[in-house]
Write a protein that binds this DNA or RNA. Structure first.
Lengths: 353, 353
DNA sequence: CTGAAAGCGCTTACAG
DNA sequence: CTGAAAGCGCTTACAG
């Protein structure tokens, strides 16, 4: 046997029929080797395997699926491929699916193309459709209704509160409670909300959590919190945090602690506070959200909330496979993941005045 | 007509035959509507369209592809789904492909599973395979040889120097030349290399570029540059940059300018220098690579090199579609993208001693 | 417009 | 082991 048999042009071999002719065996026999069926001579198996390696022939998966072989494909709709936490969820899920032999069809489900994307997944006969992120409510609810009607399993990761949807999402209320208790223990009683207050549902449940946590300690939400989100054009980045914090410093009695929608805003706020001459955490505490690598790159390092993405996605794959293995249930599956407070240097005791 | 016709269970309708029966038309007629063929009464078209919407029926793409319809799928192999620049390339490419009607099969091509991944793509009869990132050389070269033998178009984005491979990659030599000229103009003559010096090919061509740029200005590489990479365990993060810069400050005559492998290392180095009491850029200049959002979140903001990902990916899609539209050429296509120096606050005139 | 037929590439009994 | 056949879900002539 030559050390490295040269790759012969396999362009002519397009089907098992061609391939069987090339090896000099019956189509049936080749098919049996391909599917590892018993009752074949080792010599035949070897002959086919070698020809397979030499020609690089691969059976057409579309024909297999037509014959009823499962596609082992999962469709994944992303709201955005540029948000690091969403991409981390995707990467983690993709790996877990692959381990179980599933491959992923990934598309961005942007407003207006949702129908087309899901249609494409269905035409490929994916075994389940997963949504990661936040979507246009009516559009995704329509897609989910369609999937349920067809009997195709689905799962929504993050976007909470969709009608009839199987959902796994972060319990942001729990996260905010952890944050606020941490700060209350340090003596803080006034909280500046950075990008947290406005309408989208992901923000809404944070406010709920905050309100409940304050109430549990006998404090009133409206008396303790302040938001200036309306003063600047809403964004989710460093500059927005910088602008917000700057505006807070112009207030007669600025809060002593700041809770940001995400790490970027928190880092922008820290910078603004430091530029105004404040020492952190001596003069103010700041908390982010998401626990991104940048939290370790600031000085002081940023206290933040970790999404526990591994837990989320482990749970997600459970829910997906449970649906694949069992008949659909009447009630949607709803799971909440508890986030984890990560205490670092940007939070400390309130300054005694 | 009811305002919103309820979705009827479409579970029973699995084929155009079923569907045709449901609408009360011939399979042929349904097929013609589905494929927008001429010569049909508007009334028939409407009837089919409505039934399509009501039942949510979608023709089986696998059967279409069996019949010879192009799959319009591109396989994309990623080295890693957690590196932001690679993911940005993926996101950009995916969008461009989608605009042209192509969908993407995305898999992580990790060492050892490369064969399996490409095999899967080929079994799905993708029209081209794209690799984004850096791979195990022999493994990817074997895959590319197989693709060429089959006549399946391919493209490698980033990994330069692979045998027979169509490649688009960043001309890092040009980038380093821009950096070094910028610093030479500020009077710097000693350069600390942070993670740039060691073996992987992506680093190698940086050194080449540096060497050439220095030589063009009559300077000697070995006399001007210093590396301490060997002192610490190689990583690509903030801490590694911090460690390297700290070690540099222990040297008898530390360099006045630092060139980092990436932004994270640069930011770590800046922090270490600042913690040692240096003011930047007065006492030292630092340059990153990749132009990530974090570059704007530091103080001073980080001078860096932008990969021009939009250009890279626009070029990539050109190369892919060129291969799809034309017969394969004998010579591999090689394109280089010129990166762009982004000057910010972390670089300045060398300090007069 | 309808209907019957062929064929894409596979697998799976079934008879030799 | 081989060979002929049926059928998965589609499209595309072809004859009515």
């Amino acid at each position: 046997m030559p050390k490295k048999s040269p790759l012969r042009p396999a362009s002519q071999i397009r089907s098992t029929a061609d391939f069987a002719r090339h090896v000099g065996l019956a189509r049936t026999t080749v098919s049996r080797v391909l599917n590892r069926q018993p009752g074949l001579k080792q010599k035949t198996i070897d002959r086919v395997q070698q020809a397979l390696a030499e020609t690089g022939f691969t059976p057409n998966a579309h024909a297999l699926h037509l014959k009823g072989k499962r596609t082992a494909m999962i469709g994944i709709c992303m709201d955005d491929l540029l948000m690091p936490p969403a991409v981390r969820k995707l990467a983690t899920l993709q790996r877990l699916l692959r381990v179980r032999g599933f491959s992923s069809l990934i598309e961005v489900f942007s407003p207006g193309v949702g129908r087309e994307v899901v249609q494409h997944f269905l035409s490929m006969r994916v075994e389940a459709v997963v949504f990661i992120g936040y979507f246009h409510r009516e559009e995704i609810e329509a897609r989910i209704a369609g999937l349920i009607a067809r009997g195709t399993p689905h799962l929504v990761i993050d976007h909470f509160g969709l009608k009839h949807a199987n959902t796994i999402s972060l319990d942001r209320a729990v996260g905010m409670a952890a944050v606020v208790n941490h700060l209350l223990d340090f003596g803080h009683r006034t909280f500046g909300l950075l990008g947290v207050a406005q309408s989208p549902s992901s923000r809404f449940d944070r406010v709920t959590g905050l309100r409940a946590a304050l109430q549990a300690r006998g404090l009133d939400f409206d008396a303790c919190t302040l938001t200036l989100d309306h003063l600047h054009e809403r964004r989710n980045d460093f500059d927005y945090g910088h602008q917000l914090a700057t505006s807070f410093l112009l207030q007669p009695r600025p809060p002593t602690a700041f809770l940001a929608l995400n790490d970027e805003i928190a880092i922008g706020a820290m910078r603004a506070l430091q530029e105004a001459g404040l020492k952190l955490p001596r003069d103010a505490s700041v908390v982010g959200f998401n626990n991104q690598p940048a939290c370790l790159m600031t000085s002081p390092t940023l206290t933040t909330v970790d999404q526990c993405i591994d837990d989320t996605i482990a749970s997600a794959s459970e829910v997906i496979f449970a649906q694949l293995d069992h008949p659909p249930r009447a009630k949607p599956i709803i799971r909440m993941i508890a986030p984890q407070l990560v205490v670092r240097e940007s939070t400390g005791p309130v300054r005694r005045t």
